[in-house]
């Protein structure tokens, strides 16, 4: 416990702020997530939850600082951050619509499992071996996220919505990020898909991937999160364990309205 406290958090944001013209979407936002932890971010629609992700992946211009394992990374471009293991999903599905499910997965693994031109020309057998290995790894990741084998040769648009959500997460996961940011993974799914998603998220946590999860689905987030950050109108409203948050009068106020 002591050792965990002394290590810097895997991801820490400090004083994040985002403005869209005159609108302040996010201000003075600070939170952190540690190894093996799930941090939940909740708040009403338009509270600035997704702006948090956009700011910390440098997709919008912003104020404040971001630290990855103690190292300042605020000035790194989106793709540099992704290379260093900061991966995210969107509220919408995020995959390449005209590539098959398996090709999508392969395109994410491209850095480590692809051949150079020289290899392809002079050692085609090696190129084939590299490709075979890439396919094996891609299939293993898809299997881990519970995407059935029968979908691999289909386009993502042709598979059920629940499987599309999982594919988006699997693509962001790739070969294992240092921190995974999920924006409403449960949006639009229910029933067995929801249970499946819960299993996948807990499995990620068990195997040591820290998660930051934006979610509207309260049952899900209260079940999986170790800590929860509540955002309202761009500002931090409360932070604590699920039990603390559920008992917090300010949070109840924000969600249920004032009892006047």
């Amino acid at each position: 416990m002591m050792a965990a406290q002394q290590k810097p958090p895997i991801l820490r944001v400090e004083g994040l702020g985002v403005r869209y013209g005159a609108l302040t979407a996010l201000a003075e936002m600070s939170w952190s997530v540690r190894d093996g932890e799930i941090l939940g971010i909740i708040g009403p629609n338009g509270a600035g939850k997704s702006s948090c992700f956009a700011a910390l992946t440098n997709s919008v211009s912003h104020a404040g600082d971001v630290y990855l394992a103690g190292e300042a990374v605020s000035s790194l471009a989106t793709n540099e951050l992704a290379k260093r293991g900061v991966r995210r999903t969107f509220q919408q599905n995020s995959f390449f619509g005209e590539l098959t499910v398996l090709e999508n997965m392969l395109s994410v693994l491209v850095g480590n499992h692809s051949a150079s031109l020289a290899t392809s020309v002079f050692m085609p057998w090696r190129q084939m071996a590299i490709r075979e290995r890439g396919i094996a790894i891609a299939e293993a990741v898809l299997e881990r996220f519970g995407i059935p084998l029968t979908y691999y040769d289909r386009l993502p648009g042709e598979i059920p919505y629940g499987a599309q959500r999982l594919l988006s997460i699997a693509l962001a996961y790739g070969e294992g990020p240092r921190v995974l940011l999920l924006d409403e993974p449960a949006a639009g799914i229910g029933g067995t898909d929801m249970q499946h998603l819960l299993d996948v998220l807990l499995d990620l946590k068990r195997t040591g991937t820290p998660l930051v999860v934006i979610e509207h689905h309260m049952d899900l987030i209260m079940t999986i999160a170790d800590r929860i950050v509540v955002i309202e109108t761009g500002r931090l409203l409360a932070e604590g364990t699920p039990a603390e948050i559920q008992a917090n009068p300010a949070v109840l106020d924000a969600y249920l309205g004032h009892a006047e």
Binding site: T57, A77, T78, N79, E80, A82, K83, R87, R88, S94, F95, F96, G97, E98, L99, L106, S107, V108, V110, G111, S114, A115, S116, L117, T119, S120, V121, P124, Q127, L171, A172, G174
Partner: peptide, 30 residues
């Protein structure tokens, strides 16, 4: 043809063609 079909660069070009912004999130400098 070889570059596009059989190499890392080809695979990167294909994903950037599909969606440059998403490719950035997968670590590609679009």
């Amino acid at each position: 043809w070889l570059v596009l079909q059989r190499t890392r660069q080809g695979a990167i070009i294909r994903s950037v063609a599909e969606d440059p912004k998403l490719a950035q999130l997968f670590g590609i400098d679009s």
